[in-house]
Computed example of a mutant assay.
Amino acid sequence: MDLGLAGRRALVTGAGKGIGRGTVKALHAAGVQVVALSRTRADLDSLVVECPGVEPVCVDLGDWDATERALGSVGPVDLLVNNAAVALLQPFLEVTKEACDTSFDVNLRAVIQVSQIVARGLIARGAPGAIVNISSQASQRAITNHSVYCSTKGAMDMLTRVMALELGPHKIRVNAVNPTVVMTPMAQANWSDPQKAKAMLDRIPLGRFAEVENVVDVILFLLSDRSSMTTGSTVPVDGGFLAT
């Protein structure tokens, strides 16, 4: 199915690895001009080799001022994927200030900042747009040792709804995608224990974790005009986890 994305310009955060990298590659293949943002220069360098024409931006989204400078001259953006995230797992009684600050800075505050920059540009141009926030099944279910991560993703789901409410009159749609565990390097590090993985898999009716392309397909649909009446939604890609 041709989603009609060719000729548009997209910004993808957390573009160096996992879902973000997969999204950049799929958008590039669909004829989209992509601005790829990552804090890791080596990841961006290899991505540009894989996808010639991709515009790399290297910045740590945890740094508000640096992000403002990096995106100040990025130019017009039609589509935004807020994918960058950190998962700092600690038992609740051992949660540190540093884990809270870093998690909320990257997983939530940066989403607000980057979305403001893109939305202001769209409104100034009088152009429609689409924003997809990468949330998690952890926004709606409690998971041991994920208190801070679950909190940031729960906040992201509500942020998505408020953004949809306020930006809808400007023809900017905002949706969230809520995957289960996706087989990315970050997930492999956090779910490598077979006993821990089994406990999660036993709660997923389809009995497996997601692959990157499962999530990317939904992201592209939500960015496209095929979903032109969808905004303020949280879309599970979870094998049925949230149904149980």
Rank of each mutant, 00 (worst) to 15 (best):
K25G: 09
V49L: 10
E213W: 02
R173W: 03
L44D: 04
M156N: 06
T231R: 00
A84C: 08
A36Y: 00
R125A: 15
A142L: 06
S46R: 14
L80W: 01
T152V: 13
A42L: 11
D65T: 13
F221S: 05
A189T: 12
G18C: 04
R41M: 13
N175Y: 00
V181W: 02
K25E: 15
P236C: 05
G121W: 02
V77R: 01
A70S: 13
T67I: 05
S136N: 10
N133R: 04
G232L: 03
G207M: 06
R120T: 12
I123P: 04
N83A: 08
A189E: 14
R41Y: 09
T180G: 08
V132L: 05
L89I: 03
G20P: 06
V86D: 13
H170S: 14
D60W: 03
L220H: 04
N107L: 10
A124G: 12
S224E: 05
G7L: 04
A176E: 03
G4S: 09
I131K: 00
G4N: 11
D43N: 15
L159S: 06
A26I: 03
A210I: 05
E166Q: 15
R141I: 11
A130M: 03
L206N: 14
K171F: 06
A66T: 06
K25M: 13
D105S: 15
V49I: 08
A124E: 15
T244A: 11
V162E: 13
L5M: 06
E211A: 14
R203D: 13
N145M: 07
A87D: 12
D202Y: 06
V49C: 06
A130V: 07
V111T: 14
G4P: 08
V177A: 02
K17F: 06
A142H: 09
Q113D: 14
N82D: 11
G62K: 05
R125F: 11
M163C: 07
V237L: 03
P128E: 07
V118S: 01
D78Y: 00
A29G: 12
L79A: 03
A87T: 12
S151V: 13
V181G: 05
A142E: 09
L220Y: 03
A70E: 09
A199M: 14
E98A: 14
L11G: 04
V114N: 02
M156V: 15
V148M: 12
V148E: 12
A110P: 15
V237N: 07
V181Y: 01
D45M: 05
R120M: 11
A199H: 12
V57R: 04
N107G: 13
R161Y: 04
T67D: 06
T180L: 07
A84K: 00
V54K: 00
T160H: 01
R41C: 11
A110K: 02
E68S: 10
V218D: 02
S46G: 09
L242W: 02
L222H: 01
D65K: 14
V235Y: 07
K17L: 10
L108W: 08
A164M: 01
R208L: 10
H170Q: 13
V182R: 00
K171G: 03
V237F: 04
K97R: 15
W191R: 08
E98I: 10
V57I: 15
L80Y: 01
K171Y: 05
A66S: 10
G4L: 07
A130F: 02
D238I: 09
Q140C: 13
D60M: 07
G75D: 11
E55C: 07
L71H: 06
G20L: 08
K196M: 09
V32P: 04
R9P: 00
R69G: 09
D101C: 11
